[in-house]
């Protein structure tokens, strides 16, 4: 250990505010970017899942409904 006591470690012979401010900003921003990246990954993954599920439901419904719908069929007259 390069310091005699914990308070000496915090004070760093007067350079404490500079050193600790740097480390705090570094840790907060790096951790923030990591957490944000994970969260974004999860939200995109969740959105994909929901999309696939609704896709599966609606496609099932349309196939069942399909015979009952009237669709205008354009037939060439000539």
């Amino acid at each position: 250990m390069a310091f005699d006591s914990f308070s000496a470690f915090i004070a760093m012979e007067g350079h404490g505010p500079y050193v600790w401010a740097c480390y705090a900003v570094f840790v907060v921003l790096l951790a923030g970017l990591m957490v944000w990246s994970v969260k974004r990954n999860q939200s995109v993954l969740g959105a994909c899942q929901r999309r696939y599920e609704t896709d599966a439901k609606t496609s099932g419904q349309t196939t069942r409904k399909a015979p009952a719908t009237f669709t205008r069929v354009e037939i060439s007259q000539d």
């Binding site: 760093m12 012979e13 007067g14 350079h15 404490g16 500079y18 050193v19 740097c22 480390y23 570094f26």
Partner: peptide, 10 residues
């Protein structure tokens, strides 16, 4: 002195 410790992140 101790201010150089910023080098480890800079």
């Amino acid at each position: 002195g101790n201010s150089y410790r910023i080098i480890f992140i800079h």
